[in-house]
Amino acid sequence: MTDSAVEFFDGRALCLLEVSAPPLSSEERAAMDRLWEEAVASRPVLFDGPAVACIAVEDAGDELLLSWARVTYRYRALRRLESCSWLPASVFVTVLQPVEDGGLIVGRNSGSTASPGRWALPGGSAEPPAEAGALDLAALRRHAAQELVEEVGVTADPEDMTAWGVTRGEFGNIGVHFDAPPVPAELAHKHHEALVEAEAARGAAAELDQLAVVRSAADVTALGHHADFLPQVVTRYTAERTLRTA
């Protein structure tokens, strides 16, 4: 998928509605399980944890209605089938963490992740709430703030983070992006270095093994393998920030 295929949903309030996942045939389920077991055998770091699948996105004028279902990570193996009754799209959050002198913090996924070597914004797949909970914008904002702490070591109050935009990219994956208050670049790198050292001390690997600051799509391309949405998000964010500070 090319970067140009990433779609932005602008100026719409996000409303999330839980629905049931489409049923799978016995053949599809068996194929999914087989492909998942093969993937785990080659990459033992994979785990079949709870996940959120986007079932449909409806543009209702000023509102974006996202229907989602509770699944597990193994459902992503369906994408490898030549034909399937439905292809599960993921819902994920990211944090646009600007630095004070301009640019955004991005990180490279370590070998302990499902996408090693890929550069992206701090963030992660959305998780379904407990049965009594609700998946809404506030829950996604809290999750984004948690990912920022876990991956970069920078703490941001969820109430200080604003919903910046929603994208749809590869496999129909939906990204919900939040804008955080600026921090000094040196501070972000210092916190991340401490995080990497702490993880190494307990025999683990940090989710991001390297940080960088990007200010343009060209900066993203120069890094190498990256998330499909990253060049366009960086370009748009940088342009908006330039207008705000002009």
Rank of each mutant, 00 (worst) to 15 (best):
M1Y: 13
F9E: 04
D10C: 04
G11E: 10
L14C: 07
P23Y: 14
L24K: 00
S26M: 12
E28L: 00
S42P: 15
P44K: 01
V45N: 15
V45E: 15
P50N: 09
P50Q: 09
A53N: 02
A53I: 03
C54G: 04
I55L: 11
I55N: 06
V57D: 10
E58R: 14
E58Y: 14
T72D: 08
T72W: 06
A77R: 05
E82Q: 13
C84G: 07
W86E: 06
S90G: 09
S90E: 11
V99L: 00
E100K: 01
D101T: 10
S112Y: 05
T113N: 01
A114L: 09
P116T: 05
G117Q: 08
L121M: 08
S125A: 15
A132C: 14
A134Y: 13
L135E: 02
A139M: 08
R141E: 01
V149Q: 13
D157P: 08
E159S: 12
A163V: 11
E170L: 15
F171C: 13
V183E: 03
V183S: 02
H189F: 11
H189L: 10
H189R: 09
A198V: 09
R202K: 13
R202G: 00
G203Q: 08
A204S: 15
A218I: 12
D219M: 02
T221W: 15
H225S: 15
H226T: 07
V234M: 05
R236G: 07
T242H: 15
T242V: 14
L243Q: 12
A246V: 05
